[in-house]
Design a protein around this nucleic acid. Sequence first.
RNA 1: GGAUGGGUGGCAGAGCGGUUGAAUGCACCGGUCUUGAAAACCGGCAGUCGCGAAAGCGGCUCGUGGGUUCAAAUCCCACCCCAUCCGCCA
Length: 427
Amino acid sequence: MLDRRYVADNVDLIIANCCKRGSTADVARFAELDRLRRSMQADIDSLNQQAGVVSKSIGKAADANQREALKAEGRRLREEIGASEGRLQQIVSESDEILRAIPNLTHPDAPTGGEDASVEIRRGRTPSPQFDFKPLDHVELGARLKLFDFDAGAKVAGHGFYFLTNEGVLLELALQKYAVDLLMREQFTVMTTPDLARDTILEGTGFMPRGPETQIYSITGSDLSLVATAEITLGGAMHERIFEADELPLKLCGISHCFRTEAGAHGRATRGLYRVHQFTKVEMFAFTLPEQSADMHAYLLDLECALFDGLGIPYRVIDTASGDLGGPAYRKYDLEAWMPGRGEQGEWGEVTSTSNCTDYQARRLAIRYRTPGEKGTSFVHTLNGTAIAMSRAIIAILENYQCADGSVVVPEALVPWVGTSRLTPRG
RNA sequence: GGAUGGGUGGCAGAGCGGUUGAAUGCACCGGUCUUGAAAACCGGCAGUCGCGAAAGCGGCUCGUGGGUUCAAAUCCCACCCCAUCCGCCA
C-alpha cells in the first residue's frame, strides 16, 4: 500500500505508474473521494468540538432548565455527527479499497511494458548443455528413475499434486540443506515457518485471499489460509515491529511449503513439476533501512546466482518489466534456468525471483524503525528472494544433467547429501 | 474442546463516568554538575487525521465493533487476540 497522502498529492504521477503497471485502479476516483473525505472530516471535527464545549458546560449549568436545554443541544449535535460519520465511513472504505489496489511505484530503470519488454541482464556461469541425443523432459526422466509419482498425487489430492519418491526425496532434502548452509554462512537467521497464516497477514504482504481470482487456498470457517510462500510469514513475523535503526538490515531465511491454486493457469505449462499446487521452498527475506534496499536487492540476486552457479545450472537473469511486477514490487529480477526438456528445443523457465518492495509491504504490516535522536518512526523496506524452489530446481537438475543412457549425474554440490554421484534407471 | 486470567503510550504498569491523552517507573532527548563518563538533579518526550506558509489550532485514538449517557479507558453486549491450566494428540 502506498501512502494515502502521497497518492492524493501526486495523482498524475500515480496514474502514469498504474498505466505502466497495467493496473486499472481508479486513481481519479480515489482523489475525488479523498477530497470529499477531507472536507467532511473538517466538518465533523468542528461539530465534535462544539459538542465537547456543550458537554463541559453542562456541569456548570446555572439551573435545571438550562441543563436540560444544553443536554438537548448536545444530543442534537451528536446525532448530526453520527450521520456524517456514517457517510464518511463509506467514503473511507471505498477510497481504501482503491488505495490498496494501487501498485507500488516503479524503479526508473525497470523496463516498461509487458512480459515481452523484460530485459536479460546477465547469464550464469554454466553454459547450456549440448546433447548429442534428444534430451528428455523431467517427467520422463523422473519416471525412469522413479523419482516421483504423479498418479498417486492425483489420486490423493488431484491434478497438480505429487509424491516425491526415492532419490527424488533425497534431491529435495539435499537442495534444502545446500541452500540453508550457504545462507547461514551469509548470516541469515534460518527458520522453518507456519504453512498457514491469518488473512490479515496475507493482505499485509500484498496477497489477496478469498477473492474470485485468488491464488490462495483458504481454510473454511477460519481466517487462516495456506501460504503461497514463506514471504508471507517472514514478513508477517515482524508485524507491528519497531526496529532500532542499528538492528537493520535483518536477513531471514525460511523453509515452508507453498500452496497455490493456480486459478486460470490450466493448460499452460502444467506438465510435471513445473506448475503444481504444492511445493517446498527456501525463501530469503530482508528488512532494511530505505537507503540500504537497493544494495540488498543486488545482494539477494547475487546469492540466487551463486546458488545456481554452485549447482552448475545454466540460467539467465531477467530485469522484470513494469507490467509484470505485480502489486508490491518496486523492482524484480527473475532467474530463468535452462530447461532442455521443455518445449521442442528447450526453454527458459523461471526458477527464482527477487523483489524490492520498498515500503509498500511495510506500511500495511506496520513495520517501522526508529533512528536515535530523531522523532517518530519510518517504514522499513522489505525484500524477498527465492533461494531455491524445490520443484523447479529439480526440473532444472534432471534435464541439464541427463545422459544418453537415461541416467542423471548428481550436481557435485549435492553429492554429500544424495549419497551418490549418479542416478540410474531402475528396472 | 473446557476453565481461568489478561489486552492502556517505545517497554513496564496505575486508572474515581466529566478537571485523564492518560499517574508512576524505565528507556530516550536536552541541560546542570564532571577532565570525560557514571550517579544525582532540572526540563522535554504517544500516534494519527484535518486546517495553516509557519507558529499554532482543532478532531480522533486506551484490542475490535455495537449500546447506555449531554459526557465512556472507566458501565452493558458481542466478537477477536494473547497467556496459563485441564483434556486430546505428533
